[in-house]
Amino acid sequence: MPPFGTAGEPLSEFRGVRDRTVVIDTEHLTKRFGGQAAVEDLSLLVAAGEVFGFLGPNGAGKTTTVRMLAGLISKTSGSARIAGHEVGPEDSALEIRRIVGLLPENVGLYEALSPYQILDFFGQMYDCPDGPRRANIERLLRLFDLWELKDRPVATFSKGMKQKVALARALVHDPKLLFLDEPTANLDPEAAKTVRDCILALKKEGRTIFLTTHNLDEAQRICDRVAILRTRLLTVGAPDQLRASLSGHRTQVRLERTDDTLLHQVRERLSPRRVERSAEGFVVEVEDPDRENPEVVRAIVEAGGRVRSVTEVGPSFEDVYLKLVRG
């Protein structure tokens, strides 16, 4: 996906160039608790149908942002619109809550009630008419393998099962926009995959998904774009594009054998580049692999190394994340 909605990019440009509906649009959104900023100066655009990853270390302000956008807590300053409705005033907050589905950080289920009772209650709160509501509840409970357990109190469920009930609850009214705050935390790999597949299926149906996660691999695999936050927005972009923008490529050279003398000589020849020993050879940090790799290989050969293979290793998404967050 081409880059759009990068922080600081003028809105008009975004709207003009891409013919896509903006679903989330924040400008200088800020939330303070006491004097302390939890989220500061956040300007973001999320388009309809995107899976938008929202990453950042603990305490970065992800949950606070989700709560502001879902109309649960007030903002301190700045502005935000959800599907054109202004975040803040009570009547537009009702409109926003109608079209938004929320999976909060804590599942927050009524432990004494059964999944069916819980979904039925929330379906009614969202004004879903009886027939479609029942059909939708059955579809969701079957999707998450909970239909057989639909009448058991949720208190008897495992964490993962509860997470699925909570996700079903977020979907009960067929929301156009979903805020999922760490949907796969605490899930076993298979359940996490079910949730990820579900997210992709929801995307196929044209829904927009705002996804908070600490799982970088997950973000990279399912998000069209990601934002990295640490109170302030650090960056926004497609995961591949973020990786490409980061310098620090590495060339991995497998050798027949290595020793300290060879390492020393190669370091001298390739200085000031960083050269590290790896299990089967050396790893050399390069700026521009295409230009520098021949030189790297020649230096190793001239130092007496016998090259088996040369592989280029780009910066991982984790590298990007850590570099930005440690900033």
Binding site: G71, L72, L94, V100, L102, P104, N106, F122
Partner: peptide, 14 residues
């Protein structure tokens, strides 16, 4: 205790 107010407040009720 159950932290269930958040999803409840997320519904379109005042």
């Amino acid at each position: 205790v159950e932290r269930s107010l958040e999803p409840l407040l997320a519904t379109p009720a005042t």
